[in-house]
C-alpha cells in the first residue's frame, strides 16, 4: 500500500471518487455487461466462505431449534413420544406458574442491573489497561484470572464463604458501620451477590474491549491531541465512536449472556435456585423443569418465551445501532 492511501485513510481523506468501485453494486443499475456475472461470483464466494457455517447451522442448530419449537406445544417426558397439547404449556406459564413469574422478574433485574455494571467495569478497566502497555500484561492476566476458573463447586465454595455472616465481606462492611450479615442466604441480598460474581468474571468482556481499543489507529488520538482535545474530549470524539461496534457487541452479548445465566446460579444454589427462589433464573428453571422434572415440552416453551424476549431486545438494539454505532468499513 502506498503512503498516500495510508494517509488518506488516517486522515479520513478520500481517494478521488472515480478510483473507487461503487460499494453496493446491487443498488446501482446494471451499467456494464460484466455486472451480473460479478454479482453471481460474489454470491458464490459468499456461500463458499459460509459453507462450514451453513453445514453446522442446518445440521446442528436449525433442526433442533424447530424440533424444540414443536416440543413446546407438546407434553413430553423423553420416554414417551411427545403428545400435542396446543398452547397449554404457554397458558400454564403465564396464568398458573408463580415460579415462572418470579423467575422472569429476577432474571430481568439481573440483566438490567448486572449487564450495565459489568460493561462499565470492563470498559473502565480496559481503558486503564490501555493507558500504557508497559506493565499492563500482569494486570491483564490478573483481571482475567477470575474468568479462567470453571464454574465449578470451588466458585460456589469461595463465594459462599466470602459473603457469609462474619465472612470477609460482612466484616469489611461492618467496619464501616453497615451490618448486612450474610448475603448468599438472604433472599434480598443474594441477587446483588450474583451480580458481583458476574462483574468479577468480566475478563472476557474486558479483553474484547482491549482488543477493540488496540485497533483504534493511534494517529487519530495524536491528531485529536494536536487539535487541543483533552482526555475526555478524545474519549468522546475518538474512543467512543471507534469502539462503538465493540461496545455494541459487548452490550448485545452481555445481555444475551445475562439472560442465559445458568452455571453460576446452578453452582451457588446447588441447583435449587434458592434462597426463596431468588437465584432461580430462567435457564435454571428451564433446566430443572426439563431435566429434573422430565417436563421437556414445558421446558421448551420456557425456552421459546426466553428466545422471543431476547430477540425483541436484540431487535431494538439493532435498530438503535444506526444512532450510535460507527463502522469504518461502511464509510463512503
Amino acid at each position: 500500500m502506498t503512503t498516500t492511501s495510508t494517509r488518506a485513510l488516517v486522515t479520513g481523506r478520500r481517494l478521488p471518487k472515480g478510483r473507487l468501485m461503487p460499494r453496493r453494486r446491487n443498488e446501482a443499475p446494471a451499467q456494464r455487461p460484466g455486472q451480473r456475472r460479478r454479482q453471481w461470483r460474489e454470491t458464490l464466494a459468499g456461500y463458499g466462505f459460509l459453507s462450514p457455517w451453513l453445514l453446522g447451522f442446518f445440521g446442528l442448530t436449525i433442526i433442533p431449534m424447530i424440533y424444540s419449537l414443536y416440543l413446546s406445544f407438546t407434553r413430553y417426558n423423553i420416554f414417551q413420544p411427545p403428545r400435542w397439547i396446543g398452547f397449554d404449556n404457554y397458558i400454564r406459564l403465564f396464568t398458573n406458574d408463580p415460579q415462572f413469574i418470579q423467575s422472569a422478574q429476577i432474571t430481568l433485574i439481573y440483566v438490567l442491573v448486572g449487564t450495565p455494571v459489568m460493561l462499565a467495569a470492563a470498559l473502565a478497566t480496559a481503558l486503564l489497561l490501555n493507558y500504557r502497555d508497559k506493565g499492563a500484561g500482569f494486570f491483564r492476566s490478573a483481571f482475567y484470572a477470575p474468568s479462567l476458573i470453571a464454574a465449578s463447586v470451588s466458585v460456589a465454595i469461595v463465594w459462599r464463604a466470602l459473603f457469609s455472616t462474619d465472612g470477609p465481606v460482612d466484616n469489611t462492611l461492618s467496619f464501616f458501620g453497615i451490618n448486612l450479615g450474610g448475603w448468599v442466604g438472604n433472599p434480598d441480598l443474594v441477587l446483588p451477590a450474583m451480580i458481583i460474581l458476574a462483574v468479577w468474571q468480566f475478563g472476557a468482556t474486558m479483553v474484547i474491549f482491549l482488543a477493540g481499543l488496540k485497533q483504534i489507529p493511534k494517529e487519530l488520538y495524536e491528531a485529536a491531541e494536536m487539535d487541543g482535545a483533552n482526555a475526555l474530549q478524545r474519549f468522546r470524539a475518538v474512543t467512543m465512536p471507534m469502539l462503538s461496534p465493540v461496545i455494541f457487541f459487548n452490550l448485545l452479548l452481555g445481555i444475551i449472556g445475562a439472560f442465559q445465566v445458568f452455571a453460576s446460579a446452578y453452582i451457588i444454589s446447588n441447583g435449587s435456585g434458592g434462597p426463596a427462589g431468588m437465584t432461580n433464573f430462567i435457564t435454571l428453571y428451564l433446566y430443572k423443569r426439563g431435566f429434573s422434572d422430565g417436563q421437556m415440552g414445558y421446558a421448551a416453551a420456557i425456552a421459546w418465551v426466553l428466545l422471543v424476549v431476547v430477540a425483541i431486545i436484540a431487535f431494538i438494539l439493532f435498530r438503535t445501532q444506526r444512532n450510535w454505532v460507527h463502522y469504518s468499513g461502511d464509510n463512503r
Partner: peptide, 22 residues
C-alpha cells in the same frame, strides 16, 4: 455482498439467542 446475506446474518444472530439446553 451476496444474495441472502441479510437473512442468513439474522439467522446467525438468532442462534445466539437460543438457550443451549433446548
Amino acid at each position: 455482498q451476496f444474495k441472502g446475506l441479510a437473512i442468513l446474518f439474522a439467522a446467525m444472530i438468532g442462534t445466539l439467542l437460543l438457550p443451549f439446553h433446548v
